[in-house]
Design a protein around this nucleic acid. Structure first.
Lengths: 401, 401
DNA sequence: ATAATATGTTGGATAGGGAAACAAACTCAC
DNA sequence: GTGAGTTTGTTTCCCTATCCAACATATTAT
């Protein structure tokens, strides 16, 4: 049984928690792996063959998954049918940024079905962002109602977000303070909404569907126009902290008598390592990450090389701290931090091996993010999937048959 | 049922994992809280009254706990009998340091029954440490065999320890490298031995029995003769990392162009903040933590005040990083770091409020460690209790009746 | 073809927690 | 004191979900 010790027991009408747990386990496996044979599910869960059969049967009835004929994998024995996530179960994703709001629709299984980028003239207020998102969702509404079962909405915000109540405590680059965005969007759309820090969701996205697949301890760092955000996976789960604020590696101390940061401190990573310096030096007025990367690659000036080296050094200090503190298996760099790393491959590895403690440093692999521009959609959607995945049978009372 | 998805299912002969889980849950609650009434256990576990009754009955048969008549707590209703941990179930604790090896015996419930400090002439080698510990344990052996059921031995080592295999990767202050201390002591004593970093175990000890009781996110920092160690509790569990090396906050970067550290980097907290500076300035040649504290309190010289302020500033940088990264509810300072904090109360709080991000910083409480010199014994013993607590029915096949 | 292997399927057995009814032991009010 | 109200232990019965074993099925290897 193992009921959650912190929580009161579930009301009597609900099915036995153990069944729910096992359904949740299977659903999560299928969602995060895309396709799995029943035999693989049996191995992965440790459950009995017959039990998996029953459970899959229920999930098929619930239209959470569907089965297809075995693919002819040349293997001895009776082939096992393949279990797929139902793509009509989906979650909405919203990602407000300084210059745009992106709204997406993501299927169970992590496939991005739609992605709509709404460019804004100026930095949106929370109210504007919610209005835009609600309007886009309203436009999709008839399609959503007819062709999808929507589990909810996840909002990825570049700033401190209290994950429990969905209030943005402070998003400096958006100039938001104490905005209850989840409640606002919930009010406007009628969907259950959740909000969290964008980089935390990025970490979960890369963990489940991207460069960190299968890892249990992973550090994700993203550099964008809105500074540097971080998300940490420890022991297989996202590090949340007391209120979900954990992971702010962008404000790691990297330099004595450094410049003051908007956070109140001095010498933060985010003030020393920034995309805008690189844009200036490379001669570009602005643009996206790939344009920056190309410009930097083509520019062989001394000043650019020096700046890249300088920024990598500060990034190295942050990674050194993080490696000593977390002993992760992998570090995933996204945005212009991925660019910096790729411009001078090996530099960060060398810094880590010389400066971090040899135990933890010996195991780290540094890589670039794999999911690109879909990542925020996938991460935010995951936030809205969580509740569904925890109780796939209870989320949609009657299967749409 | 919820079998662990990563692990193969348990052999068929064993009892149902759900019963094991519930027994483990109850045993842990009793162990960590000392005494609990059956009614409290019912509330805490969320299990049914009758189920708790059955389970406690089994634990009584196993002599893991015993019940006593209700204490007359003035409360309406039938009084609930109290459940106590059996003190004859115990774990051994070993803590090698630069100048001594301490061996202890800790009962279920966390009470230190014995503590034997063996002072060494010089820094002990791993072999010497193991020999001394084995000899002391051999001396206790007849008593252990007649009066106790020993679950195993936990070794708390000041250095990087791979918790999975019990190998000390590197303990700089002891000058140990790649020493399989757990295997060595296991060989010498016949007990199951486990090893881990001392500060990590300190964090667990304070979490379960000390200043961090009830918290879910906690940072423990200990300053001693052997540098600064850290342990991090995140989401209720110790942060281990890929190999159990996590938590090395003593090597947080705090100063540009700082002194080189033995770890290979420069500007580490451990090189800037150290007990020996304070001993020199206070005029003491050496001594223990309480002597140092008294000397510093009585010394009103400018140079001492300046050094205390300087060290607190660097400690503040580490805590700033840690708070931004972990969003903990509590920070527990031990050893001379606790002394520093108490000499200038409020300084660290002010530093955090001005420098750390306001979301996470608003919630942190900084306090001193509560368990004093028993902490390492309790923490190390916990390491040896873990396996027992996970399966209280399976650890000692036949109850000694 | 036949053997070997792996997997789905079915029916029965079992375990273990939950619910309800009852018993017990306490406080409180009068 | 005595009865009412409250809380908890105890017992019995039930239900659920898993496991097991036997059989059926579909594939590869020989």
């Amino acid at each position: 049984m193992m009921p959650s010790p912190t929580r009161a027991p579930a009301p009597a009408s609900e099915p036995d928690p153990s069944r729910r747990n096992n359904l949740a386990l299977l659903t999560s496996l299928v969602h995060h792996n895309g396709v799995l044979s029943r035999a693989q599910l049996t191995k992965r869960t440790g459950l009995n063959r017959s039990t998996v059969g029953t459970l899959i049967g229920q999930l098929v009835d619930l239209e959470v998954v569907y089965e297809t004929a075995p693919s002819g994998g040349a293997q001895v024995g009776r082939p096992s049918p393949e279990v797929h996530p139902t793509p009509s179960i989906a979650a909405l994703a919203v990602n407000p940024e300084v210059d745009a709001i992106t709204i997406g629709l993501v299927s169970l299984g992590g496939k991005v079905q739609k992605k709509i980028r709404f460019d804004t003239e100026r930095i949106p207020t929370a109210k504007e962002a919610v209005n835009i998102a609600a309007a886009v969702i309203a436009g999709m509404r008839s399609e959503l109602d007819t062709s999808y079962r929507v589990t909810g909405v996840g909002i990825a915000v570049p700033g401190l977000v209290n994950r429990d109540d969905g209030v943005v405590r402070h998003a400096p680059h958006l100039a938001w303070r104490n905005e209850p965005v989840a409640a606002m969007l919930s009010e406007a759309t009628g969907y259950r909404c959740h909000a969290a820090n964008d980089a935390s969701l990025g970490a979960e996205g890369e963990l489940l569907f991207g460069a960190g697949a299968g890892q249990k301890n992973l550090i994700y760092l993203n550099g964008g126009a809105s500074g540097i955000g971080g998300g940490i996976i420890a022991g297989g789960a996202l590090l949340r902290g007391a209120s979900g604020y954990a992971g702010e590696l962008g404000h790691t101390f990297v330099r004595s008598s450094g410049k003051p940061c908007h956070c109140g401190a001095t010498g933060c990573l985010e003030t020393e390592v920034s995309q805008s310096h690189l844009f200036e030096l490379s001669g570009l007025g602005g643009g996206d990450a790939s344009q920056l990367e190309q410009a930097l690659r083509e520019n062989s000036s001394q000043s650019v090389a020096a700046e890249v080296a300088r920024q990598l050094e500060y990034l190295g200090i942050t990674l050194r701290n993080a490696v000593n503190t977390f002993n992760p298996e992998a570090i995933v760099l996204d945005g212009f931090l991925g660019t910096l790393h790729s411009l001078s491959p090996g530099t960060l590895d060398n810094l880590l091996h010389s400066q971090a403690m040899d135990g933890p440093a010996g195991q780290v692999k540094i890589s670039r993010a794999a999911l690109g521009s879909d990542l925020m959609m996938i991460g935010a959607a995951e936030l809205a999937f969580t509740q569904f995945l925890a109780d796939p049978a209870g989320a949609f009372p009657a299967p749409a048959s």
